[in-house]
């Protein structure tokens, strides 16, 4: 059973076993606007929690995507190179960014659940 958690950087983290899939939320894609370029991390790269490891560019600006938890990149979403618009169209589906093998599964527990994230977004006004 997959568990989905959220960060204050508006990323979602779907955990299945010891692998987490990471993307940005509906709120984040709305704020970014049309995504025109995505750079995903190389497989095998070890990332620390909070480390900038991917880039998403909208027409307006570039934004970093941070590793929500520590781990090793096992896959980047290569399809985004040709269809960056997937991030807008299906931010929690086809628009995922990368998958990482968790260094410490317990780290996921510190992230927000859906209700907490919704309340967080609401607090932003």
């Amino acid at each position: 059973m997959a568990v989905t958690k959220y960060t204050e950087e508006h990323e979602w983290v779907r955990v299945e076993g010891d692998v987490a899939t990471v993307g940005i939320t509906q709120y984040a894609q709305e704020q970014l606007g049309d995504v025109v370029f995505v750079e995903v991390p190389a497989v095998g790269r070890k990332v620390a929690k909070g480390e900038a490891c991917a880039v998403v560019e909208s027409v307006k600006a570039a934004s970093d995507i941070y590793a929500p938890v520590a781990g090793e990149i096992v896959e980047g979403n290569a399809a985004l190179a040709d269809s960056p618009g997937d991030v807008n169209a299906e931010p929690t589906g086809k628009g995922w960014f990368f998958k990482l093998k968790l260094a410490d599964k317990a780290e996921v527990d510190g992230l927000m659940d859906e209700a907490a994230y919704e309340a967080f977004v609401k607090s932003l006004g």
């Binding site: 606007g33 049309d34 025109v36 909208s58 027409v59 307006k60």
Partner: peptide, 12 residues
């Protein structure tokens, strides 16, 4: 206005 609901690409 930086953009309307259709977004910058559509407006362009």
């Amino acid at each position: 206005p930086v953009q309307y609901p259709t977004g910058i690409l559509a407006e362009h």
